[in-house]
Design a protein around this nucleic acid. Structure first.
Lengths: 344, 344
DNA sequence: TTGTAAGCGTTATCAA
DNA sequence: TTGATAACGCTTACAA
């Protein structure tokens, strides 16, 4: 397969090479006749501009770097909606996505920026103390964070509103008049990684509980999978029936195993215990049984991240002030929360 | 952040610009003294070569294109191990990964190749009749397929050995002396997409069953999620206990819902029914209950795909003959298959 | 409205 | 072992 250049197109169309470029970029007004001849030549040769040459001349790559938290023990399923949405929306803006894994760390960022591989970078799964953050703020390409670091100065952040999610969960438990609410926490691997949403979620839960005079307990860490779930449920076994017990399951991956473990002991969510999970609506709907949830909105988070990227790319140099953009959760009732007691 | 070029490095090191290039690429022998001075200048300026310029001059991008089957209704969780493995292994070879979604179709391939965005392309989830295939074979960049199209001429394919997986499943059911084996099939969306592994899996199952005089039934399509699973189990309900029934669950996503539905009816896998699933070992191990499985090996498939990519990149021009590389499944017993009857 | 030509930052050839 | 220098294929002033 021979590859043609804009010079070839120019020759066929009988114009200057620069005219071909101007037809393509639209940065100059072109007579209708010329435009047509050039376009015909382009079609005839199935010409496409060379990306490297374009990047070199224009200082723009039309590529967005996406650093994803692939590493052992990560919530594998939860990442895909982010990646998918970012890839699709980037293309809608005529950008491509270069995928790098978080295990490259700060060096990865240095590489993307230093080699001018991308015009902007999106960082997923930012940690509280994250070596990439101070670097990110000093790069020549704009960086948008998904997640919130301890110090986000100079950077744009987008994240799920974990505070709201925790608050909604607690309030729903309060409304259903529970004596005791347990927060079933995150896998040790996630806690170790200092994802700041964990303290945000928990602190907000504590605050909301205090406001309503509710006692809160935290079980943590809890691994995903059946074994850990069975242990958690076994530990609670003596208390079911004695009191109105509510479980808030913080992590998507531990939800179904916990439900299974409950059911295995004949404990029916919505009758013998209340369960609220923090997960996407799709996951909640397809759970067994469908579980009342406060939503995660990975697609909306991604949409806003991409939007922020393009805002930054547009407003070259006039760096907009940093913001933390939180996507609110909605609570959807699916009958795993017990109705308030008869007497009420 | 100022960006330095190899010219700057040359000035600082007191050498010609081309010498800097040669130090970096190692395509020329350099005196130890010069190399050191250049390296010091590089370190001092934290110089990194511009990717676009490099691609333009060298005709190599050091980027691999990965086309992934993101689209509504796809097995979201199952894709990630592929993507992750490919991204990591590419980096190990000093390549980056450009992610494009399959909804771009053949145009996406044309773009990657035509604009010289990538040195090679990996196509995931190839369909039987796939508009991208004839195009792929004619591109100037090598293409490796994950999945097998109707006509793979001129292309390298890597895939899970679905035939073997089906055969192992049937043989295990035969060994446990089942009267009747049901294959619980794939979601309609997957069947519609003409993924060739579906007929491969099913045909192999039929052939193996015939060899052993076993009757096979197929339930298909079966959507993922609780609703469809409950329907399937409800339909079978009259037959449990009357005969030795075996279920082979073809699709990872329908497995847990089916298990849940069985358990909800008091039907215990491994005692009242046999279940074998085709899924990764991780998923099988964490299922409730842990399920006997024939393995999917997404990481091994990805590893071989990347290996093939680099083989093709090395053997420029001397295009190796096309191959279909199948990754074998292993059967792992986890007690969801009933022991053979006492009398035996 | 169009053409000419100077870069962009590398690689790689040709001399030395 | 090293230095000049001509590509690489585009974008974008500067002229016309």
């Amino acid at each position: 397969m021979v590859k043609f250049t804009s010079k070839d197109v120019a020759r066929v169309a009988g114009v200057a090479q620069s005219t071909v470029s101007y037809v393509l970029t639209g940065k100059r007004s072109i007579s209708e006749d010329t435009r047509r001849r050039v376009q015909e030549a382009i079609d005839q040769l199935t010409y496409q501009p060379n990306a490297g040459a374009r990047a070199l001349a224009s200082q723009r790559t039309s590529v967005i770097g996406l650093m994803v938290p692939f590493s052992p023990g990560i919530d594998t399923a939860g990442q895909l909606p982010f990646i998918e949405t970012i890839a699709s929306l980037a293309r809608a803006h005529d950008y491509d996505v270069l995928l790098v894994t978080a295990d490259e760390g700060a060096d990865g960022l240095r590489r993307l920026s230093g080699r001018s591989l991308t015009d902007a970078i999106i960082l997923m799964d930012v940690q509280v103390e994250d070596e990439r953050i101070p670097l990110a703020a000093s790069l020549s390409v704009p960086v948008v964070l998904i997640g919130i670091p301890a110090d986000s100065s100079g950077l744009q952040c987008v994240d799920v509103d974990f505070e709201l999610a925790a608050k909604l969960s607690v309030e729903e438990m309060v409304a259903a008049q529970h004596d005791r609410v347990l927060f079933v926490g995150y896998p040790a691997e996630l806690e170790r990684r200092q994802l700041n949403y964990i303290p945000r979620f928990n602190a907000s839960a504590v605050a909301a509980a205090r406001r309503h005079g509710l006692t809160l307990e935290f079980i943590s860490p809890v691994e995903p999978g059946r074994t850990a779930a069975r242990e958690v449920v076994a530990r609670l076994l003596p208390d079911f029936g004695k009191e109105r017990l509510g479980l808030v399951i913080s992590n998507s991956q531990t939800m179904q195993p916990i439900l299974n473990a409950l059911i295995a002991h004949g404990i029916v969510p919505g009758r013998d215990v209340s369960v609220i999970a923090h997960c996407t609506d799709e996951v909640a709907q397809e759970a067994e049984p469908p579980v009342t949830n406060v939503s995660l909105e990975p697609r909306e988070v991604s949409r806003r991240a991409i939007e922020t990227v393009f805002r930054l790319l547009d407003s070259k140099r006039s760096r907009p002030k940093e913001i933390v953009d939180l996507v609110p959760s909605r609570l959807t009732r699916r009958s795993t929360v017990m109705p308030p007691p008869k007497g009420a």
